[in-house]
């Protein structure tokens, strides 16, 4: 059961991790992308933090929706519609009274796949969201599940996003969206202490 307080703490923790790793995310995005994933995410999450500052009495749906709209309007790159869609789907799922992580993440993952058109193995954030969602469903999410999922994107050939223009040359690089998703779920573990 996710509460409003936990969710705001989770997203603020995520924002802090993105801020701390802004340069690293930009560096990851430079050889296989347009070099702005860190900057774009910081812009989005600064807006998320601002909009959540007065939401401590709001319901879960309002919190997720506010985060989604901030990301959609402020990120600018592909991460905006993708993370925005994920949180919008969580907002919709929580409207049905679901506050458990399992149905929320399941809805978010389905939304991500539809929005981006990527499947597992395409070297995108889907490669982190898929095993993490499965682990949450089995009540077995650990830091290792997250870090292994992120690392597995390294040998993959990018099939979606900017890195796909490089074809085989994308091999050997971590996917920046997978890394930022890793921070999202690490923040979740730290805040909600699920394992």
């Amino acid at each position: 059961m996710l509460t409003t307080t936990q969710t705001i703490a989770w997203l603020n923790n995520f924002a802090d991790k993105i801020e701390t790793n802004k340069a690293y995310l930009n560096d990851l995005d430079t050889p296989i992308g347009d070099g702005d994933h860190g900057s774009n995410m910081v812009r989005g999450l600064t807006a998320v933090k601002a909009t959540l500052a007065d939401k401590s009495d709001a319901d879960l749906t309002t919190v997720f929706k506010a985060a989604a709209l901030a990301l959609i309007s402020k990120v600018g790159g592909a991460a905006g519609p993708l993370y925005g869609t994920a949180f919008l789907e969580m907002a919709k799922a929580s409207k049905n009274g679901d506050a458990d992580l399992d149905p929320l993440l399941t809805a978010a993952l389905a939304g991500l796949k539809k929005r981006g058109g990527a499947v597992a193995g395409d070297k995108t954030l889907i490669d982190v969201w898929t095993p993490v969602t499965a682990a949450v469903q089995a009540d077995q999410l650990t830091p290792a599940v997250i870090s292994e999922a992120v690392e597995r994107t390294k040998p993959m050939v990018a099939k979606k996003g900017r890195a796909s223009y490089l074809g085989d040359r994308s091999i050997g690089h971590l996917d920046p969206g997978a890394v930022s998703s890793g921070y999202l779920f690490t923040a979740l573990l730290e805040t909600v202490a699920q394992s």
């Binding site: 959609i72 790159g77 905006g80 519609p81 869609t85 929005r115 981006g116 996003g161 900017r162």
Partner: peptide, 11 residues
């Protein structure tokens, strides 16, 4: 032109 334009268009 490129990827994220399509996703924002769809939304």
């Amino acid at each position: 032109d490129l990827g994220s334009a399509k996703m924002n268009l769809e939304m």
